[in-house]
Design a protein around this nucleic acid. Structure first.
Lengths: 153, 153
DNA sequence: GAACGTTGGTTGAAATCTAAATTATTCCTG
DNA sequence: CAGGAATAATTTAGATTTCAACCAACGTTC
């Protein structure tokens, strides 16, 4: 096997900064969400996606795709969310295999409160410490990454 | 409570792109590492940090810090790595509470192989799809984020 | 309309992660 | 130097995640 194309010092440094910084950022936000609103990161993500969907309702498979979760994981998490009364599942009449996940009113209310704190944290640890042009660069970059990943399947 | 300072459309878009892209990127790399080398992301991280330490050996607490993991998690993961023969633990003679984690020769060999594939994946899904200036911006941004998080404790 | 392969979703067990309690040692202060 | 606070690491118990197996419904083909 040929010698791999190692990263140069600068690339290495920036790549590491991203890995480390994003890990810690994720970490701190999940902790905050859990402490103040009793929601895990993935639960929050699910509520957000549902809240944005028409009728606040999505098929499980679509929801899994939007929230970047495996179907299995989504099933488990939805079971929990349903137990908390934040989500309700309902089987689809046209395709009897299908299931719709609905955001309940209580779910929406919880999400609304959580989102207020969340945006504050996002600003505090991310938006406000980053140069606006650098933020745009981040957006560009990760859209490219997501696209590359999508096309790889 | 006053109205939160919501993100504007552009910030929202870029923030989302980051969250989504980085999640999927992490995901794909962990999967790759697991499939080809039987290592989880956090195991790999530990091996990397050890390999870079003088004598390929670190105190558990330092290792936890370098690898951004809780001590508890590190303990568990090290137990597993030790069972696989990739790491060896040895108690410290000067401070008997302390424990050194050593990277074994086999651990180093496994890491070497894994790193070759890993760098290829990093290029493929990250470095090569990003404009070099945007990569620098990412480095700057996440160094700032990490610093902000560090100073918040 | 029976057989086949596919899709949508759930389930259960094993692996992993988190948080709190535990153990052992060292540091500090009077 | 006794005693309490702090530190290093592990352990335990509980929650979450993953992985593979599963079931049911759909669509196609012959």
């Amino acid at each position: 096997m040929s010698e791999p194309r190692w990263l140069d010092a600068g690339q290495q440094r920036d790549w590491r900064a991203f890995i480390d910084g994003s890990l810690r950022l994720h970490d701190i936000m999940d902790r905050e969400l859990k402490a103040k609103h009793g929601l895990s990161g993935s639960e929050y993500e699910i509520l957000v996606r549902l809240s944005e969907a028409p009728g606040r309702c999505l098929r499980m498979a679509e929801l899994a795709e939007h929230a970047s979760q495996s179907r299995s994981r989504l099933s488990h998490t939805c079971t929990r969310l349903e137990a908390k009364g934040l989500v309700r599942r309902e089987s689809c009449s046209s395709d009897k295999r299908g299931v719709f996940a609905h955001l309940t009113d209580e779910g929406f209310a919880v999400l609304e409160r959580a989102a207020r704190d969340h945006v504050e944290t996002v600003r505090n640890f991310f938006i406000d410490v980053i140069d606006p042009d650098d933020l745009k660069a981040i957006g560009r970059a990760f859209r490219a990454v997501a696209e590359r990943i999508a096309q790889s399947r």
